[in-house]
């Protein structure tokens, strides 16, 4: 179980921004989100989308635990 956060256009596309999802890794989580919502799955892989695990940007896969917070960050608008 991990807490998953979506921001900006990703949140609008998914229709949610904060959910608990049972998944053991970032790759498994991407697969389960893509299975549930193909367009969202593709958008999460889109250009410029960064992933933050426990508020630190990560690249590639990583294990998730019940306490993990995983955020998908689309290209930032700036202030």
């Amino acid at each position: 179980m991990a807490r998953v956060l979506l921001f900006g256009p990703l949140r609008d596309l998914a229709g949610w921004g904060d959910r608990e999802i049972d998944s053991g890794s970032i790759a498994a989580l991407r697969a389960s989100l893509a299975a549930e919502h193909a367009e969202l799955g593709a958008a999460l892989e889109g250009p410029g989308v960064q992933v933050a695990l426990d508020q630190v940007i990560v690249r590639g896969d990583a294990a998730l635990t019940a306490a993990s917070e995983l955020a998908f960050l689309p290209p930032m608008s700036g202030g």
Partner: peptide, 8 residues
């Protein structure tokens, strides 16, 4: 802030 800050 205008180009790099994490806001949407």
């Amino acid at each position: 802030l205008k180009s790099r800050a994490p806001f949407w």
